[in-house]
Design a protein around this nucleic acid. Structure first.
Lengths: 195, 195
DNA sequence: AAAAAATTCTAATCTGGATTAAAATAATGC
DNA sequence: GCATTATTTTAATCCAGATTAGAATTTTTT
């Protein structure tokens, strides 16, 4: 738990809102989701959302920041376990996917970064690139410690992360079946990395 | 060349339009792309697009139908070569990605299926499911002929296709570098399948 | 090269959904 | 219970961007 969201009513509601928004955006697309749709999930009026966020753009932005934070958190957790590269990658994937499909999800797919306002766009892009870079580092670590076969880390990274990012597109079901994904996916995605 | 698009001026322009739209949607997101943006790429006015398509929804719909056709075409081509399962999968991926990153691209990411009108949505969803099903068949073929190791074809299929679908999210560059992706990706994606 | 058809443009309208202001209700502290 | 603050609602606006009608232009046909 990196920075445990404040327990204040406000923070809790806001977090619920971000999850509701992520669900809407993932399932109905960005343009297909009105603020009314998001609010409806929370039993609120569209106007009420403006108490938590300046506008729709900011709502998306916050969803993306949250998504980045979740990825980062999973990665940190995996790194702290002091395992070899291969095993670290495996753990990271498991932790990340577990969050995506679990109670703390859904996590927004970053499909609309370009429609963010410049400042926000740059920030989210930076987070996104950072995440990719860190993942590639993990791969390199594995290659160096001999647990991962030599490969093009840039491409391999893109391949694996693409798979992960796409999950919310086809999985909307209950967290229970989500756990199946969390168990199988990491193995499938790393099978090709083995030495 | 499944059904070579008619050589008529109309069909050619329409195809250019669909590629322009796909590029916009992929790069700037659906909501971030106005019809004016799409038209600008073609050196046209937004109103001109209505000569080719009833409305924006239909533009998206046609992009998706085209995307599905391209995937189908690549698959057919690979299947016709009469190779074993593993090799067929490899070829299919290469052909599909080659089109995505090549002159006939870009191909639209199907991110906004939910905002299509019901009839179109059902149709595109059907095409999409069909494609997944066919890919899973290819995997099964490989498992049966011994070229692919036993695995959960549903999950494995989702993993691989997710990776492919995500490519246009991070690759916008020239077709030249795209060819690198077309060469490397299929190998990376199938390394884990080998027996 | 005139006539017909195809394509594009100009100049409006139209509209759904975002946004805002102010009032109403609920929660909290004293 | 009263005052203050936090949260939500109601009821309008507002507006970018989709859409349309008709005129203008370009292409094709004869």
């Amino acid at each position: 738990m990196a920075k445990k969201a404040e327990e204040t009513r406000f923070e809790l509601q806001k977090d619920r809102m971000l999850r509701a928004a992520a669900r809407c955006f993932n399932e109905k697309g960005y343009s297909g989701s009105s603020l009314k749709d998001v609010a409806a999930i929370l039993g609120l009026t569209d106007a009420a959302l403006y108490y938590y966020v300046r506008n729709k753009e900011e709502l998306v932005y916050e969803c993306y920041v949250r998504a980045a934070a979740v990825g980062r958190e999973a990665m940190q957790r995996a790194l702290h376990e002091g395992l070899d590269g291969m095993e670290t990658v495996l753990r990271y994937l498991r932790y990340h996917i577990e969050i995506m499909v679990g109670e703390r999800g859904p996590i927004a797919i970053m499909s609309e970064i370009p429609s963010l306002k410049p400042a926000h766009r740059e920030e989210v892009l930076a987070l996104s690139r950072q995440h990719s870079a860190r993942f590639e580092e993990m791969l390199n670590t594995g290659i160096n410690d001999g647990s991962i076969a030599d490969c093009d880390v840039r491409m391999t990274g893109n391949a694996i992360m693409g798979s992960v990012n796409w999950i919310p597109k086809w999985h909307h079901g209950d967290p229970a079946t989500g756990q199946v994904i969390a168990r199988e996916f990491p193995v499938i995605l790393t099978r090709g990395l083995r030495r």
